[in-house]
Write a protein that binds this DNA or RNA. Structure first.
Length: 569
RNA sequence: CGGGACGUGGCGCAGCUUGGUAGCGCGCAUCGUUCGGGACGAUGAGGUCGCCGGUUCAAAUCCGGCCGUCCCGACCA
């Protein structure tokens, strides 16, 4: 491509509304433009990168036996109602009417559609199957942000596996794990596989691939020693045992004027440290009010509460609800003697004694509370959020907590969708059994952005060669100098013939502008052709990532550059 | 959805408090001088001041409503 003819609208200034590094650089570099909140146009440079990412994904999924197909983005509302997800995903579903008055939705994902197609599989002899597509998804996110990282319309590769039994699913799952690892490596991002919550999917196993980045939205507990990694929605840790001093034979009420918080009570004369308090929260789970108990210095992990209780929608109780349920306001709540609502207690409270908690009378607390003796816990469960520095559940070393981008997610779905939609086969004994399914997603543009988050410097993007829009840019220093143009054009033609993706900057611009633009858009290799070098029979090669420069004899340039590109793809 | 900010040529911004001919930088076009790290000069093109309504002789500016965008939070396969 000749830069003089290309549509590469680079900007000299940072766009005012771009915050994330990838957002800023992709807009400035002329890769993308925003059309509306969370919706972007992909310009020629961006399109080339996207195409390379798609090619890598396609090669890897084909390699594990995937069959590519294309399902509609426009779905009947009815199929979403049949699996209950019109309700559970209702918020993010784009809905629309058609002329015959029916309701349609734009697909946010495709389990329902793949599963309904899979009803055509009738015999175990036709299993396993692995189907995938690379297609546009629509999700009406409440808050799109950070450029391509969180959008409302995006491309996803989603694959779906169909097996007779769990063993078959496990195999397909493991193959996807390997394929995804290959994909991220080839795209040039570091993605940490982490145990994840299955959320509303209701599956069994689920692994997210997280690219560490401050622009991400997921927190991951990671053990540097043994590689344990889990989304904090799921992560556990080991904590030192606390020895409680011996307490009274029954709880004692005491006034605590002005005490509202855990910290207040810890500082209060006659109170107790946070780790000796019981925190009592009122939550409403699918309409049912419950009490949630945690150690005073621990934070609730709401996703764990959802997962453990099988709840679709959870919220904290409103002040009026709390008062009606317990007779006091937040700040003085407790579970001692409470009957009626379910009491869900975090495992870390087990066998604790002589604790301090609210008395359900405003500005009064109880001391000497023995959890086993005084509180009618309905269910024990892991509910707390892991914090950096706590012990790894596998090896005990201190955990770190990283922020990252969810670049891919693989799920074992089991039979949830096949049962709901009647996707069954006859097994060898002639018995009708539901297909055992897995689903596997990877966001194309999100990975493009993640690659920029991981590969940039203060001058711009630094693409890995594998996904760079162009592998080489030839910078023509003096486009009105005949020798320069002759040599540059010949090199350009030769590199094209050698199957190198090459861009020639033949614009009538000053050299500084060209160098700056080349660095901004992030082309891995730059060959500078100008009279100064040609006087000595050389051109100059600059490596974008390292800034390393070398001189190449004009006659060698084509071979050297082509080989360099080939070896770094 | 709650909180905050913003909306003025392609991009980045000033002007609004105190109503009176719409400005600056970059970019763009033409010409000239320049030319190996974002040149200089001259001339020029380009704007329903987000939209609707109100106040006023007169509204980018004041008032009301709406729309849009970004940030924080809530939310989120």
């Amino acid at each position: 491509m000749r830069w003089s003819q290309a549509f590469i609208p680079t900007l000299r200034d940072d766009p005012a509304d771009a915050d994330a590094v990838s957002h800023r650089l992709l807009v400035r570099g002329g890769y993308i433009r925003q059309l509306m909140a969370g919706v972007y146009s992909v310009l020629p440079l961006g399109f080339r990168v996207r195409a390379k990412i798609i090619r890598i994904i396609r090669e890897e999924i084909d390699a594990i036996g995937g069959q590519e197909l294309l399902l509609p983005a426009l779905h009947p509302r009815e199929i979403w109602e049949r699996t209950g997800r019109f309700e559970s995903m209702g918020e993010i579903l784009f809905t629309l009417d058609d002329l015959r008055g029916g309701d349609a939705v734009l697909g946010p994902t495709h389990e329902e559609i793949f599963t309904s197609l899979a009803t055509e599989i009738t015999s175990y002899r036709h299993l396993p199957q692995l189907w995938y597509q690379i297609q546009t998804k629509f999700r009406d996110e409440a808050r799109p942000k950070s450029g391509l990282l969180r959008v409302r319309e995006f491309t996803m590769k989603d694959s779906y596996s169909f097996d007779l039994d769990d063993a078959g699913l496990d195999l397909q799952f493991d193959r996807h794990f390997a394929a995804y690892s290959n994909i991220f490596r080839r795209i040039g991002v570091t993605a940490i596989p982490v145990e994840a919550s299955s959320g509303a999917m209701g599956g069994t196993d689920s692994i997210e691939f997280i690219v560490p980045s401050p622009a991400g939205e997921d927190d991951v507990a990671h053990c540097p020693a043994c590689d344990y990694a889990a989304n904090v929605e799921r992560a556990t840790s080991t904590l030192p045992r606390i020895e409680d001093p011996v307490g009274p034979a029954q709880p004692e009420r005491f006034p605590t004027p002005g005490v509202r918080t855990i910290a207040d009570l810890a500082a209060f004369e006659g109170g107790a440290a946070g780790d000796r308090q019981i925190k009592t929260l009122v939550y409403v789970l699918d309409g049912e009010p419950v009490l949630v108990l945690l150690r005073g210095d621990h934070e609730l992990q709401e996703q764990k509460l959802l997962d453990e209780t099988g709840t679709v929608e959870a919220r904290s109780g409103h002040p009026e609800e709390i008062r009606e349920l317990l007779g006091a306001d937040a700040g003085s709540l407790g579970a001692v003697g409470v009957e009626g609502p379910r009491i869900l207690a975090d495992l870390q409270l087990a066998e604790r004694t002589n604790m301090v908690t609210g008395a359900n009378i405003d500005e009064h607390h109880l001391r000497g509370v023995d959890v086993g003796r005084d509180i009618a816990v309905s269910e024990w469960m892991d509910l707390r959020t892991v914090v950096a520095g706590e012990g790894c559940p596998v090896c005990g070393e201190p955990l770190e907590v990283l922020r990252g981008i969810e670049a891919g997610h693989i799920f074992k779905l089991g039979t949830k969708f096949s049962e709901a939609l009647g996707a069954t086969v006859l097994d060898a004994d002639g018995v009708s059994v539901p297909l055992v399914m897995g689903s596997y997603g990877i966001g194309v543009e999100r990975n493009l952005a993640a690659a920029v988050e991981m590969n940039h410097d203060d001058r711009g993007i630094v693409w890995p060669v594998s996904i760079a829009p162009y592998e080489v840019v030839i910078t023509v220093v003096k486009p009105d100098d005949d020798d320069t143009v002759t040599v540059a054009d010949r090199l350009y033609e030769d590199l094209l013939a050698a199957d190198v993706d090459v861009l020639i900057d033949d614009r009538a611009e000053r050299p500084g502008v060209k160098f700056t633009d080349a660095e901004l858009i992030g082309v891995p290799y730059r060959v500078t052709v100008g009279p100064r070098g040609l006087a000595d029979g050389v051109v100059e090669l600059t490596v974008r990532r390292t800034g390393e420069r070398s001189e190449l004899a004009v006659e060698d340039a084509q071979d050297v550059v082509a080989n360099l590109v080939r070896s770094s793809r």
